[in-house]
Design a protein around this nucleic acid. Sequence first.
DNA 1: TATTATATTGACACAGTGTTGTTTTTGCAA
DNA 2: TTGCAAAAACAACACTGTGTCAATATAATA
Lengths: 191, 191
Amino acid sequence: MKELKQDRKSRYTRMVLRDSLVELMKTKPITKITIKELCENADINRSTFYSHYSNQYDLLNSIEEETLSWAKKSISYLMDKHDIQETKNILLEMFKSIKENSQHLQVLMSEKGDIDFQKRLFALIYEECGINLAAGEHKDEDMNESYFVFVVNGSVGLIQHWLKNGMTKSAEEMADIIYQFTFAREPNEMK
Amino acid sequence: MKELKQDRKSRYTRMVLRDSLVELMKTKPITKITIKELCENADINRSTFYSHYSNQYDLLNSIEEETLSWAKKSISYLMDKHDIQETKNILLEMFKSIKENSQHLQVLMSEKGDIDFQKRLFALIYEECGINLAAGEHKDEDMNESYFVFVVNGSVGLIQHWLKNGMTKSAEEMADIIYQFTFAREPNEMK
DNA sequence: TATTATATTGACACAGTGTTGTTTTTGCAA
DNA sequence: TTGCAAAAACAACACTGTGTCAATATAATA
């Protein structure tokens, strides 16, 4: 009981540190960010940092984990509540989230982010959608796995490209494009 | 004249430093590699390092540039000399090179490498092949650009996956798979 | 052999790291 | 309100790595 209440301060500190890192990552890669400047930016004592995280990468990792679990929750919420079963709509919601909602998400998805996180996020999206990509289209299991890897990486690259170039396309267009490249066998099926 | 001959020592030093970095990158990410250990590993004085490169990333970049120009030369050689116009055969040769030839290339393409280098390499391959991916297949220029981005990233991801998992597939199989995902509209066209 | 470019060496001040012990602040409960 | 823990702030520590410099040594070659 005590522990839960006492968390408040801790949680505030962690939040400030997370925001500070994300803010700095907008301007430079994490490799160039020192713990010292991270703490000065957050107005947190450097010693305090060490009582929560062991280094920059540990902190980044905790942000990633948090974001992944948020994404997982968002997707299952979409699937349950709104009875949206179509992959395209889920993709669309994800794109809207990336574009509008989360400061963190934009940085994490950008070139400055961790490519592994991005792959994990998209693997999660596709898997959470319960879709075996192009199932039956290919001869064997190996081919399906290869196609999954190919499509996840292609999708992530497209998002990065989108974010990097100022997001001139709408979320709808992006969802449409990714859907076509990934799921649709016939072009012009949607729209 | 003088300059050319005097290069010898310099070039040796640079080569040793490059090999040293690649060797260390097999065991840890470049972010964890200090200039100090890099020089100790190469048996080169730390001060000497600074007279050639400004830091680890500068050194890595020079390796990447060298590799890219090697790749460019290899491809144009293949295109010119042997009159191989078929994309698939060029892809196959590339995969053989990756698998057999270059120690450096394996590290650069691995997860420990620089993702940007990997994208540059594949963009180069596709462009050098003179292939406008799926030209005319899609409605507009935007769509073609998106498809290019998607396919380059998908290919790079697949290679990484291949290298990471011990290259169980043959170079032929990999060329086949990438060809199908990228160029072929009908599955089972080749083989 | 003398010249010249380069590498080596050791020293320097300086940044950032990770830890420890002490003091201050905070939230909550008696 | 006061007192009690828990957490944060603070200051000091030794340590590692950084970047630069000036003096010296070592090769190749003219």
